[in-house]
Amino acid sequence: MRGGSIYIERSSGLHWLHPLTKVALTALCFASAAALPGLPWLLALFVGLLLPLAIWGRLTGAFLKACLLVVGPFVLSLTIIQGFFSGGETVLFKLGRFAFTQEGLLAGLTFAARLLVALGGTLLLMQSTPQPHLMQALTERGFPPRIAYVVLTAIQIFPSFQDRAQVIMDAQQARGLELQSGLLNRARLLLPMVGPLILGSVMDVSERAMALEARAFSSPARKTSLNTLADSLLQRAVRWLLALAAAALLLWRLWSALQ
């Protein structure tokens, strides 16, 4: 867990897409994860849409690895919990008095596939889009710039905070703090470890705020950006189509649930 981004720089069509087009794609993934009825459909969407996009973005390996890292633990937990406890007729094997059923296994895998589609869409978006571009695209459409600032600053300074935490921990250890001791002892070490980092960063805040004010942070004037995001009529149309498809999927699901 290092750094504050999983963005991977490549020159590909996927990377060149306007961020909002990719956001619409992720929205469609979320709607599909919620609405699609069964395992085959969900896997088909992953193999038929997300995987080709990852290949187009020249991210295949990184994308699959990220999916495995994020969804893998869920697959394991879901298989065990749903397999043993969600009931069903077809018993695959028994462990003591608990039966592992085929229906439960299927329910667990379906849940995992829903997570794979939704989280896979998010991962692909973040692997192919730098966070500043995403925030710029959103602010251009009326997203509050202050929130964009908070999000981007947090992402930027968090790795340096991690480094500082590391330095503090090394320093405290050099002074004789024992890290390999009992649980209660280690819990007592928490304060000397996190205290200096937190206090130091809170006291830096006013300096940061002054620097911002000196750069017209709270001025209501419109700010321009050096970076321009390429957009096209075709992408606009695709965005609308994707959003419509997502809405239609959700409505269809709602309608069939009410039936």
């Binding site: 504050g4 600032y149 300074i157 991690q162 935490a165 980092l197 809170v202 805040v205």
Partner: peptide
């Protein structure tokens, strides 16, 4: 301060 608070939330995981 909010930005710093968020960064702290994320960074303290290391500790």
């Amino acid at each position: 301060l909010i930005a710093v608070g968020i960064a702290l939330n994320l960074a303290l995981g290391t500790v």
